[in-house]
């Protein structure tokens, strides 16, 4: 067998295996998407077929109608606004804080870093109510501010992530720039931020879908039905004391995947470009 055909076979096996694996991975998602074209009995009794027996597009119309006269258009608008601002805030604030913790040396830095790690160790459920009380005393409830403000004050998960990425940027770069007369501020904007691109993109993708998915925050801090987010609206379908319109719920769950998926597709390009130069092929 020639080297060329050997390579071709290896290529084909690679694609085949990855595709099969991929199908297994997305099967449950496909089931959900095709479920949006089934009715309750077809979803619950039709077991695991991916082909809807009758294509029930009306599920989308029924779901989109929303609740109490407020359609999903409103919920989507609210979610997009909140999620975009929060993601933006997370990127800006976390990058600054990470730079401070990872690159600058000053008294108190270790302490601050320990505190930040500690904030991740207490489960949100016990902090929820005391936090709510603070925002309530500040007169910020109900409003989206409690949902957004924390993102401008740094998110521990992403601060730490960016710190780890900064650890991969050679320190010689900063030092050289410093000797050349760059301030700490311009080192951050001119050297660190550009090199942090993969980490920033990761942050955008993950923070976006976390915020999109967040149910607890909007539930607690928003009140009027016109300000509900998609995550709250989806839960409204599943009141445990009454019947559930699964078709409509699946239809809206499917649509709610779109923004998250688009963000991923859009930014994923920058993660893929050039990544393969790591030369694992050889």
């Amino acid at each position: 067998m020639s080297l060329k055909s050997k390579k071709r076979i290896s290529n084909i096996t690679y694609h085949l295996l990855v595709l099969i694996g991929g199908f297994i991975m997305v099967y449950p998602v496909l089931w959900m998407i095709t479920g949006s074209l089934k009715n309750n009995t077809e979803i619950l009794n039709g077991a695991l077929s991916l082909v809807p027996p009758n294509w029930r597009w009306e599920n989308f119309a029924r779901g989109w109608r929303g609740f109490g006269g407020i359609s999903f258009a409103t919920y989507f608008r609210n979610s997009i606004i909140i999620t975009s601002i929060a993601t933006f805030g997370t990127v800006i604030s976390s990058a600054c804080i990470a730079y401070s913790f990872a690159r600058l040396k000053y008294p108190g830095r270790k302490f601050l870093f320990t505190m930040m790690i500690m904030t991740m160790l207490l489960p949100g459920q016990v902090l929820l109510i005391p936090t709510y009380i603070i925002y309530n005393k500040l007169g910020l409830v109900p409003s989206p501010i409690p949902l957004l403000l924390p993102h401008f004050l740094g998110q521990a998960f992403f601060i730490y992530q960016m710190m780890q990425f900064m650890a991969g940027i050679p320190r010689e770069l900063d030092e050289a720039a410093f000797v050349d007369g760059c301030s700490r501020y311009s080192i951050f904007t001119r050297i660190i931020v550009p090199l942090l691109k993969p980490s920033v993109i990761t942050t955008i993708i993950i923070q976006f879908y976390w915020k999109w998915d967040d149910f607890q925050g909007p539930l607690v801090y928003l009140s009027q039905p016109t300000s509900y987010t998609v995550s709250i609206a989806l839960k409204l379908f599943a009141d445990s004391t009454s019947r559930t319109d699964y078709g409509a719920m699946f239809a809206m769950s499917t649509i709610s995947l779109i923004p998250v998926f688009l963000i991923f597709l859009f930014f994923n390009r920058y993660l893929t470009e050039g990544i393969s130069t790591s030369g694992l092929k050889g």
Partner: peptide
């Protein structure tokens, strides 16, 4: 696996990433 340079890498990565995007929703 996804570092292998092919035209389909982006697509594959999306395929494997989709499950994470839907998070803990009721449908899942």
């Amino acid at each position: 696996i996804m570092t292998r340079k092919t035209r389909l890498t982006g697509f594959y990565r999306s395929l494997y990433y989709v499950p994470s995007l839907i998070g803990g929703s009721i449908a899942v």
